[in-house]
Design a protein around this nucleic acid. Sequence first.
DNA 1: TCATCTATCTTGCACAACAAGATAATACCT
DNA 2: AGGTATTATCTTGTTGTGCAAGATAGATGA
Lengths: 111, 111
Amino acid sequence: MSRELKRGTIELVLLTLLEERERYGYEIVAAIEERSGGRLAVRDGTLYPVLYRLEEAGFVEPRWETQQRGVPRKYYRITEEGKEESRRLRTEWREFAAGLDAILDRMEDSR
Amino acid sequence: MSRELKRGTIELVLLTLLEERERYGYEIVAAIEERSGGRLAVRDGTLYPVLYRLEEAGFVEPRWETQQRGVPRKYYRITEEGKEESRRLRTEWREFAAGLDAILDRMEDSR
DNA sequence: TCATCTATCTTGCACAACAAGATAATACCT
DNA sequence: AGGTATTATCTTGTTGTGCAAGATAGATGA
């Protein structure tokens, strides 16, 4: 899937997945691929910087968890501000998609 | 509307509008705003470089038209390759939107 | 011991949309 | 005629963000 289309949507995807429950980065990478039916994919090198941006903005809060077995994981929890931002981004996405579809819908192959 | 969301979609929008009929740059700016119900907007400084990219790729062909009155206009016509590209981008957009919606749809406010 | 897996993190790059402004021809108003 | 506004195209420099590539490190198993 084109890199450009993803722009501006990854934050919304992360916040949405974190609204369901706490997750750690590596887990989110897999969740995105699975939940989108393989249509979306994000590299971990992309994901971590996004999580830092969200953290700095106060939308998520991290918590280290040392496992019985395996490497320590950094779990992220969404904040109230994060939920608000998620709603805002979701609305913006829907507005955008509706606007674009309004242009595409006149094409003969349009759905 | 956020700058980032638009990324990668402007070429599709232009090709779609040009599939309907020949248009010139300044006209396209207005058409985008009108047809999207005011939800999308693109500046002319953004649009012209996109048209050059499309021209260089062989997806559109320009033609100068000197008006009886007013400044000369550069009309763009879509090529066969351009129509193919338009279909390809349209499919890609729908796949992407479907993938993203699959993630969003589990949220309680999800439509 | 060595490879593999899980997991986090960093650096540098690419590229598209935008702001801001330049240019030019014409139209309108006084 | 002169001055301002309108239509229209084009250019330059900035910015943000996704990605490739690689580093690090602990745990596990052959």
